[in-house]
């Protein structure tokens, strides 16, 4: 639509194709053929092997487990390996409400994850506290750790979580300077 407002998750580029708005940022100047090609390869490998951490906090974890099971098979995205150790995982899915007592634990687990690491805030409670606007819960997990993707819902259906994983794949693929950072060449 020609006069569509400039909000919402999508923005239109040429040929009526829609892309996610947050993914259109980035360095438009190419850094050279070799580096960008290697970046693309590394990003492609990373986005197809996102290993989440086995980490459920509340009822959202049921849907997270459902996503890993055979009906909504996230092995299709290479993300089926739930790792029990933060040192082996790439993705932290905050599945459930974050209590004040759990917040330092989440922070420590996140710090134990090796780079590159991503965080999905799953459900209304993790994103903003949801209905539990009280003293016991941290209102939004992004007060403790940086969050990449917010998934609303109570709990979100596995499809919604799969959608967030495809968003995360797009984000990883759009990353620039991957190989430089991996080789510790950034100034």
């Amino acid at each position: 639509m020609a006069n569509a407002l400039d909000f919402g998750p999508y923005v239109e580029i040429e040929n009526g194709k829609r892309v996610v708005k947050e993914l259109t940022y980035g360095n438009p100047t190419p850094e050279g053929v070799v580096l960008t090609t290697v970046d693309n390869v590394v990003n492609w490998m990373r986005k197809n092997s996102i290993w989440p951490m086995t980490f459920g906090l509340a009822c959202c974890a049921i849907e997270m487990m459902s996503m890993g099971a055979s009906r909504f098979d996230i092995a299709r995205f290479g993300a089926e390996v739930f790792r029990p150790s933060p040192r082996q995982s790439d993705l932290m899915i905050i599945a459930g409400r974050v209590s004040n007592k759990m917040a330092p634990v989440i922070r420590q687990l996140w710090e134990q994850m090796p780079e590159p690491k991503w965080v999905i805030s799953m459900g209304a409670c993790a994103t903003s506290g949801g209905v539990f606007n009280n003293y016991a819960l941290v209102q939004s997990v992004n007060q403790v750790i940086p969050v990449d993707i917010y998934v609303p819902g109570c709990p979100p259906r596995p499809e919604q979580l799969i959608y967030s994983i495809t968003l995360l794949q797009q984000k990883i693929q759009a990353e620039r300077g991957t190989i430089k950072r991996a080789l510790n060449l950034t100034s």
Partner: peptide
């Protein structure tokens, strides 16, 4: 509608037009 996950939490406040 269910595909409303986003990178930015402020996008999740939907206005009447949406």
């Amino acid at each position: 509608g269910f595909e409303i996950a986003t990178f930015n939490a402020t996008n999740l406040i939907y206005r009447k037009e949406q």
